[in-house]
Write a protein that binds this DNA or RNA. Structure first.
Lengths: 352, 352
DNA sequence: CTCTCGACGTTTTACGTATAACTGACCTCG
DNA sequence: CGAGGTCAGTTATACGTAAAACGTCGAGAG
């Protein structure tokens, strides 16, 4: 029976003080040393500990609800089996899905993923390492502004870049948006469109430059005219403004565009609104396409014709690439396929 | 000049091996002991270290780019100044904004926030502690299914619940959705609506029960009829289906509803699509309201009349409540105000 | 002159884990 | 029968930090 003021100190085996049980507590309960507990629970006991003892240790651990202290493990090992996923914003379900894919692979390899949503949007220099609150083994990051990327690289951690310039990280997982643009242009050409406008994202990020380059290339190759380009921040409201400028401008020498190719679904939805406000019917008077296939794309009327990105595969491939880099392997750049999803926002050109 | 195979061991002060510099390295550079470094950088040096020495230490730390090893600190202190934020999904920008608010307060108090998006949606039992990969001081969680909540409570960590039953955590930050429903009903009554249908979220979560109760109460109080209730999962597609059922059903004794009150903006957007597909005009033939005021609400045509939730305040209040709980204070339940935002999806009743 | 006290640091210790190095007991084989 | 080997563990140690406990030196009090 404990006295009025209990003598602190011994009797660790009881383990019932207040804190979580430690490896020593498990060892006491199982009648072995802490080292044996660590061996057994770490799975490296074959040939070092008898099967009967191992089972006893596992039983004791289960009984006490033991879970190793991650801080202690990290301190000892110097690595955390944890990766940071840097995304521009949480609202875009593309990145939510990327996250899901990455988590799926990470889990299978006993890795954790900490999510860092850059609070100020895609262009902000991230300070993820203060925020993550834990040491990190590596980083997976989506396309971002050069300064932000430089800050990230400066940390010296293994870095996998998603949808970014090859060579900007230790590995790259890309999306074949050039092919996406090819499919978009082919689709529009088939519908008779040959005067096309581009609503471009006004974001300093490799992926959008690549989209523009690919679009220009394809238009040239299919001898369609790029009537006009307007830039807009990545939001429905800015897309609306930019599309309004395009649709109300004095026709250029080639005439008004019959199709608006948007860098992103948000911009495309803005374009739909712009057309409606100007009394134009979609797709009868003007066709609109996006990129991403976010949930929003099917929420609007008409539903959006868009390029579906393999978000979950991107996440999975990103995590796999990071694991390979950590393993010292050389990783070749991936380039994942995309698929045009034709819905109601594109139709035959009014002026074929 | 180092020999061919350098003798490992001493010369820590140089610190230029490969790893991050430690407190010992800083101490060596500043000509003091590691303990002094810890005191100075920990800010508790007043009266224990001279101002000149303190400055020397800070200079050395800056020079070497020293940042304390979080694992070691955690191991020593047993707490991490890190909170877990459990949200049902990332796609909803309500939660993205909650996160932003929580981060803002956390940052001011040198706290970190780790985001845990329950991968399987709001009803899944979370396993955040394996995923977080770091010890946690407390948890902020949004409304969730009872089993998931029980699992979370079982961890024994301080718990702040958002938009949930009071008493389900150590503190609660609520949203005055009862008042929101009051405003919705008042608005609709003013427009002459008295036959109203409810598109309810088919989610086992306190907040949606509360919304239903409040709606029923308000309808009774204003002598309007609840013509019908349909339940739907939280998506545009399910909202569309549910609204279609409502709008095509044989009119009940009270006649067809002239307004659809939806538990959520996603459902409301689904309702907009359903109306359009059935050839009904919004708001001329039927009015629609949502709750949340997510970005989607202004992306659709007509824009959605909805109840704007104070997402950022919820996040801030949640983090503040957690800090207070950790500080041992008793926290009274908050109840944050909401605001009806009237847009184009509501209009005068066709049958006043 | 001694005693005390404050200012300024240093030495030491604990945190919980993973693993290298070590210890006996038992077995095998020349 | 003893040298070496395997099995089944144990003991000892390092990781980097925070903070309690412990000097040391000079100044002022008695």
């Amino acid at each position: 029976m404990p006295g009025q003021h209990a003598a602190a100190g011994d009797d660790r085996a009881a383990g019932s003080r207040r804190s979580r049980p430690t490896g020593h507590d498990v060892a006491g309960a199982a009648g072995v040393s802490q080292a044996t507990v660590s061996l057994v629970l770490g799975g490296k006991w074959e040939g070092r500990v008898s099967a009967r003892t191992a089972e006893a240790v596992r039983a004791a651990a289960r009984e006490l609800g033991y879970r190793p202290n991650l801080a202690a493990r990290t301190l000892r090992l110097g690595r955390t089996r944890t990766a940071l996923l840097v995304v521009p914003a949480l609202t875009n379900d593309f990145f939510a899905t990327v996250h899901r894919g990455a988590v799926e692979v990470a889990r299978a390899h006993d890795f954790g993923i900490v999510l860092y949503p850059s609070p100020e949007g895609i262009n902000a220099a991230p300070d993820p390492f203060a925020s993550a609150r834990t040491a990190l083994d590596g980083v997976i990051a989506s396309s971002m502004a050069p300064e932000a990327l430089a800050a990230l690289r400066g940390e010296g951690l293994p870095l996998v870049m998603l949808d970014a310039d090859e060579g900007s990280g230790d590995a790259t997982v890309n999306i074949d948006l050039a092919d996406g643009m090819r499919q978009v242009v082919a689709h529009l050409r088939e519908l008779g469109h040959h005067r096309i406008a581009h609503i471009a994202a006004a974001v300093d990020s490799w992926t959008f430059e690549a989209r523009a380059d690919a679009l220009h290339e394809e238009l040239r190759a299919s001898s369609a005219a790029l009537v006009r380009t307007e830039r807009a921040a990545l939001s429905v409201a800015d897309g609306l403004e930019a599309a309004t400028r395009v649709l109300t401008a004095a026709p250029s020498r080639d005439g008004a565009p019959t199709a608006l190719v948007c860098d992103d679904d948000l911009l495309a939805v803005g374009a739909l609104k712009a057309a409606r406000r100007l009394g134009l019917r979609v797709p009868e008077d003007v066709s609109v396409t996006g990129v991403d296939d976010v949930a929003l794309a099917t929420a609007v009327e008409p539903e959006l014709t868009t390029v579906r990105l393999p978000a979950e595969q991107v996440g999975r491939a990103g995590m796999r690439a990071l694991l390979a880099v950590l393993d010292g392997q050389r990783v070749e750049a991936a380039r994942l396929p995309v698929q045009l999803v034709v819905r109601g926002s594109t139709g035959p050109s009014p002026h074929p």
